[in-house]
Design a binder for these strands. Sequence first.
DNA 1: TGACTTAATTCAAGACTCGTACTAAACCTG
DNA 2: CAGGTTTAGTACGAGTCTTGAATTAAGTCA
Lengths: 402, 402
Amino acid sequence: MYEALDRMSSQIAGAPTGTEHVRRQNIALILRSLRTEGPATRTELARRTGLAKATVGTIVGDLRAGRAVSEDESVSSGRGRPGRPVTLTGESIIGLGFEVNVDYIAAVALDLAGTVKLIETRPVTAGHPPDIEQLVGVACEIRDSLIADGHTVVGATIAVPGLVSHDNRTVVWAPNLGWDDVKLASDLEDAFRDPCPTTIDNDANCAALAEASHGISTDSASSLYLTGTVGIGAGIIEDGRLLRGGSGFAGEVGHMPIGDPTSVCGCGRLGCWEASIGLRAMLRGVGMSEHETPVKTATAVAARAERDQGVRDALEDLGRDLGTGIATLATVLNPEVIVLGGYFVPLGEYVVPAAGRVLEERLPSAAMHLPEIRLSSLGIHAAALGAAEGALAGVYAGNVPV
Amino acid sequence: MYEALDRMSSQIAGAPTGTEHVRRQNIALILRSLRTEGPATRTELARRTGLAKATVGTIVGDLRAGRAVSEDESVSSGRGRPGRPVTLTGESIIGLGFEVNVDYIAAVALDLAGTVKLIETRPVTAGHPPDIEQLVGVACEIRDSLIADGHTVVGATIAVPGLVSHDNRTVVWAPNLGWDDVKLASDLEDAFRDPCPTTIDNDANCAALAEASHGISTDSASSLYLTGTVGIGAGIIEDGRLLRGGSGFAGEVGHMPIGDPTSVCGCGRLGCWEASIGLRAMLRGVGMSEHETPVKTATAVAARAERDQGVRDALEDLGRDLGTGIATLATVLNPEVIVLGGYFVPLGEYVVPAAGRVLEERLPSAAMHLPEIRLSSLGIHAAALGAAEGALAGVYAGNVPV
DNA sequence: TGACTTAATTCAAGACTCGTACTAAACCTG
DNA sequence: CAGGTTTAGTACGAGTCTTGAATTAAGTCA
């Protein structure tokens, strides 16, 4: 697991490097090893990382002092002095993730060991989406209670359904929330009493990260996450890193001009992909109406499909359109794994086979590996979980002192 | 210039970090600064990089000993002791790039200063494409002559028209050359008498790198290079890094299923993009025939277009199809700059305006910046130049000792 | 000529990693 | 149960690198 994280040891370009940087890098190396390959004795860690035993000793000592790791019972391996394995602990360091959506705010707190320490969803007043004060309130409250419990919150990330600036600090445009050019990161950092580095990210990006770190695509460093709701969003992970594009808007795949050229999209144009495979288009195809949420809607459709050939046929059509877009994306990005989320999950068995067939037909060359299509495993909290993961990323990358 | 290079200071993930690594990183920092912002005195370099004056002093001393930089005349700035600026020099360190194509092998030698020290194109025996022995022969000969002149060749990269493995060592499939699963990097490293790290890359990737480091897109860290020949290839640069995909085959955009669904592609399928905008499709559109090379062909078409409205109309159609694909790619990747190369260059004035209009129409949101469409500026040696640049990348990234 | 100003180098201090030697804690053998 | 064996972890000195302060170098200006 966590292979994607293994590649995250990037560093700020252009910064002078000194010996404290070396230490941070090696701390991160040990943390990643503990996370990726599990608890280990100091000697074992030295073997895994290539560091000298003495170095591992001092670093583990520091980490223990900072309560980032704890020492387990001695474990004898037959001969010789038994080792004392160390484990990542949830005692101290916490990454905090939130997802703001039209009808709820979700929160996840993740410790270094990858354990979810807190997970909750708060519905917001029906009718109108949450405003910034509401989010700030929830975020401060949850963060304060974690701190009161003795945790150190090393960062927070907010997942937002919309366009986020390249520096991950501003919500440029979130039509569903009615947010426009909101300097959310600064707002939150001001609201938090102590310093707490805060970033914003697109919800599909966060969900992609969640699947790559805790979900169904942990075995791959190059994956593509597609979420189906009314629109279609994507999170692209390339070599363990999120692909953001020049202004941070990469992955807005819903409006690729590859759908049925006669169908009208919500954006007013013709032929957008999501005009063919968005939730509404799916419902039109099967002749059903919308429930409260996309997933509930799709669950109802799946139930109907079980005994209605017409619905199954419509879903197969949908699968083919889905496959065309997936083939386009796979041709450009060459991911190893494609994860389908949102409303596609309940419809998986009806949609994925057709999509897979189109993908296979459209593969540019036999030499190219066929990406594997999988269904998301994380459900509603994917984005918040990925956000929490993102908040911890700095620690594992060696950019945040522990 | 060279903004893309500024982001390249990545490092091998998972390697233990010691003090010699710190030194390499800081050496690279100074080299990048000299390249990006030009010659400077030690004090000026300290200011630019944030390093201590003493550190800059010792590093510059080492670089001078290794003949990577040289000291210029003293330059007085009014008051005080005049500084002695140092400049990157071409005396010693060289990156070597080759491009193998159907009818030629091109070579470029690039020094640290970014000066082209050698550039040549060798036609190969007409009729059949070069074989591996031929390439090995040329590469060894050119490398030996550079070494004889006192240069140190720090690496070589070969640009190949085809699929290259993710580790950049094997040509998986190059149909035009008739190469199939060739372990080219190892073959060359064996043939070079002294050690010379050698990598292989796709020709469009190399050309993209060339444009980003020496060409028309040096001002951007996120660019997309599209080359038009019989097929359509792409090189994607994201945050200064080439996007390679899970198995290294990213950018095979020619077979995206977004073209006219009735036109047959060379690969046998229908609707591939290159079946609509490849060289042959363009020629069918304007009713002309092929010359020796795509660029010569396109030049002839451009000449005809000057006085033939029918040709201009056909090219405008082509531009729209080009624009559709560009819109698709821009929606997914959100590049700042799109560079058109290959046969598109001579036809720029007839094709780009239509493509730009489609792109503008198809932009997912007004908040998204419109990528700028530019024409390649480097001509036939782009790929070899980019390959040479790639061979030097390790030096600027601090991965190669100087 | 002497004061000033800025550039570059020297030097000692501090932060690391690393290999070696040494101590600690188990099991095994007779 | 005592002594040997084996493996884990630590102490310590050496080596590398950055850094800030002090020092030296090389000009201009009055």
